[in-house]
Design a binder for these strands. Structure first.
Length: 485
DNA sequence: TTTTGAGTTGTTCGA
DNA sequence: GTCGAACAACTCAAA
């Protein structure tokens, strides 16, 4: 077969879309017959990078959506399972394809995988082309004047905004010459990505619509209203004030460039929203920053960025971790967050900070245990965001929160869930308590508890630690760490 | 090379 | 109730 008529494999990874996908455009533009393939690879990723249960639920539906999208352009999505290099080699043998195109994945294990593939395919005379698409800016493109990676967010983001403009999003390929001979394909249903017993995701399709169409809908809804009060609204977990685009971005169902350009266009059209839009874009900036950090410092997912935190006396045990995971800490706002997570696969960002601070600073449980739980239960679980977020809260990260910053779970609830709607929704056993006791039921007089049907220690736990003394222990532990240096 | 200004998201205490 | 200061120094990034 000549290079002109031999097929090309487009290998879908964390880029489950057809719009603004440079690699797919390039593959289609060759005119060669195209094989669109997704590989479920549970072998190549390192343990901390493996998708958890919630991610697998999302993946199932996202693949379904992508398959429908490709079918609408006259094609199909070939599903295969196994270690990606072996699966691709087999597919090359079957089809005599001359090239593999894909979008880059920047996680450390994926870098290694791509390098290995590149070398192997070179030997075979198969070209391997990797394209950007998952980020606004390529790691390596954003460097300090000294030539190193940025370690502080503000200068990083200032540099990005001042010196680089993300290119305009590209349309989906107009014409794809599909490879027609039938190929053996796995059935999505046989992959067991959906939970069965128990089916904890039964309600999830009421919260989420995985796939490009759902992503576009989310973005439009966000830009039509909530963005205009983003700066303030995003702090209040009971308001629908955030974009909730994170899982769509993680799976690549929408490109960050498309989000950037839609938001920027809105700011241009209504200057009043400019500040709010900038605030929203800086959240995209944090996503970039985390991905760049993980790329330049691949141990961030497993080791503290600040080395002295390797000596931190994490004292919290399994029982504390379990109480936190189940939302049985006795601090209503923490429990509400952990239960929202379990029920929906998502947690509001401010509450993520509160529960993470509680686990690491009140319970002194290692941030890695928290990160592992989030990785398993979040639909937007993302190795870069998750690792950097946890290290930021724990104080061990780059540009981290100062060690003495310990969220007070009572104050946070009172300030940001001021009407108690969030707590009443996710901790219904407290719903009848008056506002002033809602964040600290242990302070309620017995009569108020009785009226609300709350029996502390029976249908809602006593606080598992005392805030003041837990805070003092954490400060002492951090203080000791400092003296060690 | 040295210097300078700055750094996501908080809490507590005392005036 | 409100306000400013202390919490702690250190590292980063650019001039």
């Amino acid at each position: 077969m000549t290079a002109m008529t031999s097929p090309i494999i487009y290998w879908f990874r964390q880029d489950l879309r057809t719009r603004d996908l440079p690699g797919l455009l390039a593959a289609a533009a060759t005119g060669q017959p195209l094989i669109a393939c997704y590989i479920l690879d549970d072998i190549s990723p390192t343990p901390e990078a493996l998708p958890g249960g919630a991610s697998r639920w999302w993946l199932h539906h996202s693949l379904q959506a992508l398959a429908a999208e490709l079918a609408a352009c006259g094609g199909s999505l070939l599903l295969r399972r196994g270690a990606a290099p072996a699966v691709l080699e087999a597919l090359l043998d079957e089809t005599d394809a001359s090239a593999i195109y894909c979008s880059r994945v920047y996680e450390p294990w994926a870098n290694g995988l791509e390098e290995g593939l590149h070398a192997g395919l070179d030997q075979r005379g198969v070209s391997f082309k990797r394209y950007p698409g998952a980020l606004l800016f390529e790691p390596g493109q954003v460097m300090t004047q000294g030539g190193g990676p940025f370690k502080v967010f503000t200068p990083f983001w200032r540099h990005c905004r001042n010196t680089i403009a993300p290119a305009a999003p590209r349309p989906p390929p107009a014409n794809i010459n599909w490879y027609r001979p039938p190929l053996a394909a796995a059935e999505l249903a046989s992959w067991g990505l959906l939970p069965v017993k128990p089916n904890w995701a039964r309600q999830w399709n009421t919260f989420w619509q995985p796939g490009s169409a759902g992503a576009g809908r989310r973005l439009a809804a966000f830009l039509a209203g909530p963005v205009n009060d983003y700066d303030e609204g995003r702090n209040h977990p009971a308001r629908e004030a955030t974009s909730r685009l994170s899982p769509h971005l993680h799976f690549g169902e929408i490109s960050p460039r498309a989000v950037w350009h839609a938001a920027t266009a809105l700011a241009a059209a209504s200057p009043a929203s400019e500040g709010q839009v900038a605030k929203f874009l800086s959240e995209l900036g944090w996503r970039e920053f985390s991905h760049h950090l993980l790329y330049h410092f691949p141990t961030i997912a497993t080791e503290p960025f600040k080395a002295q935190f390797g000596h931190f006396p994490w004292a919290g045990g399994e029982a504390a971790l379990r109480a936190w995971q189940r939302g049985h800490t006795g601090y209503p706002v923490v429990d509400a967050g952990m239960r929202e997570l379990w029920a929906t696969g998502f947690m509001h960002n401010r509450i993520r900070m509160v529960v993470a601070s509680f686990l690491t600073k009140h319970l002194l449980v290692h941030w890695r245990a928290g990160a592992r739980w989030f990785q398993d239960t979040l639909v937007d679980a993302d190795l870069a965001n998750n690792s950097c977020g946890w290290q930021w809260v724990a104080g061990s990260g780059a540009d981290a929160s100062p060690y003495f910053r310990i969220f007070n779970p009572v104050t946070q609830g009172e300030r940001f869930d001021e009407e108690g709607r969030y707590i009443r929704r996710w901790v219904p056993e407290l719903a009848l308590l008056p506002d002033r006791y809602l964040n600290q039921p242990w302070e309620a007089p017995p009569a108020a508890l009785a009226t609300a049907g709350v029996r502390l220690g029976e249908n809602y736990p006593h606080p598992m630690v005392d805030h003041r003394s837990a805070r003092e222990s954490a400060l002492a532990a951090y203080g000791a760490l400092r003296e060690r240096k």
